[in-house]
Amino acid sequence: MPSWSEFQPFIVSGLALGGVYALSGVGLVVLYRATGVLNLAFGAVGAMGAFIAWSIINKAGAPGWVGWIACILFGGVLTLGYGLIFGPLLAARGPLVQTICTLGLALVLFGAMDLLWSSSGGQARSITLPSDSGGFMIGQVQVNWTSVIGLGAGIVITAGTHAFLRYTKLGTAMRAMANDREITATLGVPVRRVEAAAWFGCGLLAGIAGILLADLAALDDTTLTFTVVISALAAALIARLHSIWITFAAAIVIGLVHDLITPITQLTDYRDMTPFVLAAIALIAVSRRQVFTQSREEG
C-alpha cells in the first residue's frame, strides 16, 4: 500500500480530473433540467467547436480569443438549431426517446469531425491556453492554472445555473417547460422563446466546456465525444439527473478516486472503471427503495 506522500500529488491531479468530469456532468444535468432532454451530444458539440477553434488559431493564424469565441458561439448555434427542430418534434415522446435522438446527433458530429480533422500522418493537435504555463506549489505538488480555471469554471457554472434555474423567472419557466410542455404553454409562457433560450444557453455551455476540456483532457474526437461524456454521465446519474450540486460533488469524487487508485498496483489497471462502478452502486442502492422513478411516462 503506497504511503501518504505518494498519494499527495494524485489528490491534486484527481481534483483536476474531477473538474473535467464536473464541467461535462454539470452541463448535462443543466441541459436536462432546462430542456427535459439529456443531450448526450454535449461532448461532440464542444469537441467540434474546439476543432474549429484549433483550425482558426493554427491554420488561419488568428489570435486565441477569436478561436474560443468561435467555439462557444458554434456550440450555442448548433445546439439551438438541433433544439428548435427536435425539441417540439419529440416533446411528447418522453426523455428516453429524446436522449437517444441526441445520440444520433453525436454520431453525425463524430463522423464529420473524423472526416474534417483526420489523424493521418501522425498529426497531433492540441489546444493551449495562456494559463497552461504557470502555476503554484502546494507542498511538493505543482498546481497548474488551467486546472484551477477548469475547477473554478465548474463551481461558477454550478452555482450560477443552480441560482438561475431556481430564482429567476426565465429559469423557472425553463424548469416548468422541461416538466410538461403542454401545461406550461397553457399557462401563457412563451414556450418557443424559452425553449430557444434554454437550448442556446446550454449550447454556449457546451462550447465553453469544449475549449476547457480540449485543453485539460485532449483534443481528440473519441475522448471528448464518448469517453469524457460517458464518465461524466456517471456523476449525473449519481445525482439522479436532478441536483446540480450533487453532480458536481460526484464528479469530483470520481476524479479523486480514479487518480488515487493509480499508485495501487493491484487495482491500477482497472481504474478506468471508477465512474461506472460508482454509478452502478449508487443507482442500484437507490432503486431498492422504489420501483418507478420519475413521473414522466415514455411514449
Binding site: 494524485f10 483532457a217 476524479g255 480514479h258
Partner: peptide, 12 residues
C-alpha cells in the same frame, strides 16, 4: 488509449 487523465500518468 485514448488517454483521458494524462496528469496522473505523468506523475506515476
Amino acid at each position: 488509449v485514448p488517454i483521458t487523465s494524462a496528469d496522473s500518468i505523468a506523475i506515476k
